[in-house]
Structures are given as structure tokens and as C-alpha cells.
Amino acid sequence: MNAPRSTSALLYLSGVTVSFDGFKALNNLSLLVEPGEMRAIIGPNGAGKTTMMDVITGKTRPDEGEVVFDGSADLTKLDEADIATLGIGRKFQKPTVFENHTVRDNLLLALAGIRSWYKLLGAAPTRAENDRLAGILSIIRMEEQQHMLGARLSHGQKQWLEIGMLLAQNPKLLLVDEPVAGMTDVETETTAQVLREVNKNHSVVVVEHDMSFVRALGVKVTVLHEGAMLAEGSLDQVSADPRVVEVYLGR
């Protein structure tokens, strides 16, 4: 194992390849995310964005390549629960909250802390936990809905609850998959604010189609194409890149 233990990057992907029945979803992909950074990942459909997320969170095992978190943890050897415990949170494209649980219970389940089943059998929420829940409820502005069931929330409310759950999980790195899909302009603007707020304490990787949202974030952009990195830089830089224009418009 020659994992680069000295890397300063929070997330280090090198030469990652994943193929499904001959089709290469990721093709020798490399990516570096520094601590405290917010990164936007864009790319056309099928570029490998979701597969990349799957590899980082342990849902899919890469055929080749290194995935290292926090300088030392080899993510290709760990499963989803391990990786989540290490401090990588993931928000799915489709909001997935627990529909039969209240908003508060959703957050409680996500709250960093006890994960083992036998400890949870006799545990009651501690005061510290209750305080943190109250704090998160106010950040996502859902104090009033805290006893509402997940199933009854509107689409936007579910998105926020999910962000709240990620905050509760308090990960070092947050992976966010298309957070503004299906949102109104106002909601999109609020989401960008929330993410910038979140970025103060957490590193964030955002996958997004919506260019105005990416522009609003104002962060470094990585363009994926056919499972590999095509360009990297500010949004203005990459959108001036003829290869990127080719990929987005040339077909």
C-alpha cells in the first residue's frame, strides 16, 4: 500500500476507474478537495457524477484507483457506515427523509453520536443532543414543523430537512447531489446561502446542473466528461474552455 499519507487534501481521488459490464462509468478520474474548500462538479448526463459520489461513499467499489480521505483513510476498503462515521455526509438528488418519522426524529437519527444498536436500546436523548437539535431546527427554520411527519413536508421543506440532517451529522466533508433540482428561484437563492453558511465549518462538494446556482456559489468548478476530468478552474475559466463548450453544446 503506497497510500499518500502525507497528502494535505481532505479528499484524494487518483486514477479511479469503474466499469459496468464493459461501460466505463469512471475512467481514470483524479480529483483533489482541500480542507475547508467548496467545490462544484458539473458535467452532462452520464458524465459519472453520481458514480463518483457512490465511490466516495462506499456504495460502489472502484475497479482501480485510490480514494483517500483525510490523508489516511482508504475509502475503497470501507463500507457506507464506516465512511459516514469517518465524516462524509451525503445528500441525495431525490430528497430522502424518513417519511414515517417526525422532523425532529429525522434530525435525531442523523445527529452525530451513538450509532450502535445495543447502546441505542436504552438511550434517551441527552440535554446536549436536545440543544443541538434546537440549534439545527432554527438554522433550517423548521421549529414549527418539528413534530410533523416527513411524509407531509413540501418538496422544499424536505430539501431543507435533509440539509439539517447533514448538519446534525456534522461531517468533515459534505457531498451534495443537485440540491436545487425542482426548486423555485427564491428557494434556490436560499439554498446557496445555506450552503455557503455550511461551508464555513465543513468542506463541501456540490454536484449541480443549474449554472446560475453554480455561479451564485462562486467556487472552483470541476467539469466531468465521460468519467474523467475535462477542465477545472473558476466558472468563467471553464466556460471559456472550448472543450467544455464542445461537450455542452457541440452534440
Binding site: 430522502t96 426524529d105 437519527l109 450502535s116 444498536w117
Partner: peptide, 28 residues
Amino acid sequence: GSRFGKALTAVRDAESRMRFLGYRVEGY
């Protein structure tokens, strides 16, 4: 009725979500 139970029904409703939250679903 315990917090275990909340986690249990959450496993029932969205197992992979629970994994991404760091729960080792097998134990439950």
C-alpha cells in the same frame, strides 16, 4: 418505543439512507 425502535423503522423505510448516516444496519 426506544431510540433503537426509531432507528429500526428508519431502516425499514430507507435502509441505504441509514447506512449513509453511519448506521450499521445489520446489527439492528
